[in-house]
Write a protein that binds this DNA or RNA. Sequence first.
DNA 1: TGCCAGGCCGGGT
DNA 2: ACCCGGCATGGC
Length: 222
Amino acid sequence: MPSIVQEVYQRLYDAFGPQHWWPGDTQFEIMVGAVLTQNTNWKNVERAIANLRQADLLQPKALYATPLEELEELIRPAGYYRIKARRLRSLLELVVERYGGSLEKMFAADPAALREQLLAVRGIGPETADSILLYAGGIPVFVIDAYTYRIFARHGWVEPDADYHRLQEYFQSQLPDDAAMFNEYHALLVRLGKHYCQKRRPRCRGCPLEELLPSGGPAEVD
DNA sequence: TGCCAGGCCGGGT
DNA sequence: ACCCGGCATGGC
């Protein structure tokens, strides 16, 4: 008897197929995108990344050396551009000063220690840290985001007040320790959330999980 | 045309 | 320990 976590994965995979995430060509681009997409539409992030590419700045040392004001202008389309420029700077400080600008070296570090280092960076919280570890580093940590919470809380599969760590432990306890699978699952949850589980649409109409709904339908938990 | 997006931080109770 | 406002652009 598969757990609900496994059941949901199977249904999403059957409905949507593989998602090929994260959108990004290099580890560094993925890392930058993880910061830029904080509470921000990915479309806007793409513009900002295109600007960085155009300026040939998608490398740690080059971006770290970019004057703050210039960096702000380049990433402006991603929104929160002043604070994000500083967040990127702080992250790059870790990458360059501690790992010599080598993501190779960075991701070869002990994952738990690296996670702590990322969380110590101003502007990097659990989701951004885990996104970097999983999508850029291929390290098996399950990424929890607003969609994950919303989908599982509305269906009554997790407590409405479950925090990040608890949700992460829950998912990881039900799944094989496999980065490719965590990658795919999170991507599928985002895909589902974008289409069926937005803030203003608590009904989840037509969603592939509809028949898994407990009688009484989804709860309002936002 | 408002409302929202793949968060996180800091200050106020 | 919570709660809340601030951060900002572009899409629908």
